[in-house]
Structures are given as C-alpha cells and as structure tokens.
C-alpha cells in the first residue's frame, strides 16, 4: 500500500517544514495588547484621520499579526494563502459593485428619497432639533379624502359605483363585493366592514386578494372609508 505515511498525524510534513520557525508568542501577545491601547486612546484626540488610522489601521496590523503568527499562515503552503486571499478579494469586489447602489443615495436617473429623508431626520434629531414628522418617506401625498381614496385604491376592483364591477375585478373569483346589493348588507355590519378593510378578506374567510390596509391607512382613515362604503348601501 503506497500511502504517504509521512504526511499525517499531529506532526506531519506540514509541520516539520516550519518547525523551528515558531515566533516568540509572548512578544507578539504584548505587542497586540500595546496596539489595543493605542486604538482605544486614538479617538481621544478627536481628529478624524487619527481615529481612522488608530482604529482601522491598527486593526489591520493586529489581524495580520494574529493570522501570520498565531495561525501560522506565514509558514503555510501557498495554496491556502491563495484561497483565503480569493475570499477577501471577492468581498472587496462585492462591496465595490454594490456600493454604487447602496452607499450612494442618488445616481444616474434615480434617487433614494427614503434614505435621504432618514439621514436628514437623523441628523436633525442628533442636533437636538425638533423632530419634524417627514412626509418624504411616503412617495406622494395626495391628501386623504375617503371618496378620492376609494376611487384610487378600491375602485379598480369594486368599481367607482361600488357595484363590484371594477376593471380588475371582472375576472376575479370570488367576485369583489357588490356594495349596492341588498343581500350583501343582509349579513354584514359595520364592524365587519372595518375589519375587512383593516385585516383583509382572508381574515373572514373571503378572498385573500382583498388585502388588509392597516399598513397604509390609519384607523381613523379606515373609519372614513367604511363611512363611504356605507353610502353605497341601498336606501342609505
């Protein structure tokens, strides 16, 4: 059996070739502690570039000391260095490719309104200013008005006349509710209308296509919508 007997076990070939190269671990340990002190003290000066060097420059030095001496990468075969380097290079590639979209808040023909607003809000709060509830997070403020909102959002399925004959609703099964139908009102009360607008059709065993709107509208606004829906009630 032609096995590579010399190359296994605790003291295999991989070790033998760097036997005798062991660094003075104690010295490296105390160097690391010294560097730690420097990195903690660095920000005391309050100068940005000193902090950057003392924090990240020293982190690199420390990591390098640990990797080379404690992990013995200095004496490892080249192949291990290659694939560890490859993984780091890939991360640099990833950050490089993604930062154009994620780090920046505006670019060619686009801007990240929500992020810009979040930055402004946050900086204002940090400066101790009154936090103004920004409307910018909402893409457009068309003002709330129950009939308008019904026409904007609900009418595509329920129809502007509330008859369940909106363009998108024509092909749905089950059909969108017809608010002009007396049978519809026979078994429903206001609490149920509010509940369905808030939590969606699935919450009462009806079509899940009717989603809950609690994320978009306040309870007060949903009440107004329910009021508007009740205006379709025959004889109302």
């Amino acid at each position: 059996m032609a096995e590579h007997h010399d190359q296994h076990g605790a003291h295999g070939a991989g070790h033998d070739e760097h036997a005798g190269h062991h660094p003075n671990y104690k010295k490296i340990y105390f160097t690391l502690l010294g560097l730690l002190v420097v990195s903690v003290v660095g920000p005391v000066f309050g100068i940005v570039w000193v902090t950057l060097i003392s924090a990240f420059g020293i982190a690199l030095v420390k990591a390098n000391l640990v990797i080379q001496n404690f992990m013995h990468l200095k004496w490892e075969k080249r192949i291990a260095k290659w694939f560890l380097t490859a993984s780091l290079v890939l991360m640099a590639l990833f950050v490089g490719g993604v930062s154009v979209d994620v780090l920046n808040h505006e670019g060619n023909n686009w801007e990240n309104i929500a992020a810009q607003a979040a930055v402004e809000r946050g900086l204002a709060a940090a400066a101790g200013e009154e936090v103004v509830e920004e409307e910018a997070a909402e893409p457009v403020d068309v003002g709330f008005n129950a009939p308008n909102m019904f026409n904007l959002v609900c009418a595509s399925c329920h129809g502007a006349a509330g008859d369940g004959k909106g363009a998108a609703g024509l092909a749905l099964d089950p059909r969108p509710a017809n608010f002009t139908d007396p049978a519809f009102w026979a078994e429903r009360d206001r609490a149920r209308i509010v509940n369905v607008i808030t939590n969606g059709g699935a919450s009462v065993g009806r079509s899940p296509l009717m989603v809950g709107w609690s994320a978009s509208f306040s309870a007060e606004q949903i009440e107004q919508l329910a009021d508007y829906v009740e205006t379709f009630r025959p004889g109302a």
């Binding site: 979209d101 994620v102 997070a137």
Partner: peptide
C-alpha cells in the same frame, strides 16, 4: 425597509452575487 434606513436593493445584490 427603506423607511428605516434599509435598502431592498441590497438583497438583490446579496442574492445575485
């Protein structure tokens, strides 16, 4: 969540990378 400083595009990159 864009409203809280997050970014949906980040996931697209993480996913397709």
């Amino acid at each position: 969540d864009p409203a809280r400083g997050g970014d949906p595009v980040l996931w697209q990159h993480l996913f397709w990378f």
